[in-house]
């Protein structure tokens, strides 16, 4: 049973959260009401547009769900490639400091180039889905790489020596000590990477190509000056980003019970 004081605190924070959401909508409604611009839709017209997009679809007949699924597919594919490269390379560089020293002059400047800046080059070099995968990869790879390296470096030397005294070879030390020990940092990198990737996909979709994707939906309706649908796209992006983050946090909580659980 939860103590009453705790219950009260929970209720209070819920009420605070709820009231701030209500305040937000009131604020929005007021701005829409008093703004002289016809391009500030009120919450109700956005809701209507949301339902239309879900049920009828956009001007080319693609529903909101379809736009979201296509964007998600692109992000997840790029994310998988980013994780599948970032984690092993990060492990390797974390374990071999000399190799890391050798590639640092390449990696350090590269990681400050945002995915958006790669768009023109990616248009020239890659086609369709590969372009999206590449851009998402750029967004995912560096956070994952850096956090994996940090995780490897934070692995306790005592644990590695302990494993060695039990006769563990390098492969076993990596698999059973360094990797599980770095996993919290790796997961953190994956979460950040997924967030960055999700934000990049929208920009990448605005550049051109397939007529589907949330970024494209926003651009289509910005071009038609129907801002209500633009906001529908923005809200959908926000909600999906939030959900993705939540799922990874949930996974982290499950995986790292050994970290967060309070002393029994």
């Amino acid at each position: 049973m939860i103590p009453i004081k705790k219950q009260y605190r929970r209720l209070r924070s819920l009420l605070f959260a709820l009231s701030s959401v209500i305040m937000f909508f009131i604020f929005w409604e007021l701005i829409a009401l008093y703004s002289p611009s016809p391009y500030v839709p009120d919450p109700y017209s956005v809701l209507k547009a949301f339902i239309t997009m879900l049920t009828v679809g956009d001007i080319d007949g693609y529903t909101l769900t379809w736009h979201a699924l296509v964007s998600l597919e692109r992000v997840l594919l790029g994310f998988i490639v980013g994780a599948a490269t970032g984690v092993p390379i990060g492990m390797l560089l974390g374990i071999k400091p000399t190799l890391k020293g050798a590639v640092t002059p390449i990696i350090e400047p590269l990681r400050f180039i945002p995915p958006i800046a790669w768009i023109p080059l990616s248009i020239v070099l890659l086609i369709g889905l590969w372009r999206y995968i590449f851009l998402i990869w750029i967004g995912v790879f560096f956070p994952v790489l850096l956090d994996t390296i940090a995780g490897v470096k934070r692995t306790s030397i005592t644990l590695i020596q302990m494993a060695k005294t039990f006769g563990a070879d390098n492969k076993k030390i990596i698999a059973r000590v360094i990797f599980p020990s770095s996993l919290p940092e790796i997961m953190n990198g994956l979460r950040v990477g997924l967030g960055v990737g999700w934000m990049c996909i929208v920009a990448a979709e605005m550049i051109g190509g397939e007529p589907v994707g949330l970024g494209r939906l926003i651009l289509k309706y910005a071009n038609l000056l129907q801002i209500d649908v633009v906001i529908v796209g923005m809200i959908t992006i926000g909600l999906i980003g939030l959900t993705l983050n939540y799922f990874i946090l949930l996974l982290e909580k499950r995986l790292f019970k050994w970290r967060v659980e309070i002393r029994a």
Partner: peptide, 17 residues
């Protein structure tokens, strides 16, 4: 329809996209 930057269209066409 594949909407895109007009200046990219000949390029995208040339590559079969």
């Amino acid at each position: 329809k594949y909407p895109g930057r007009v200046s990219d269209l000949p390029l995208q066409y040339g590559r079969g996209e």
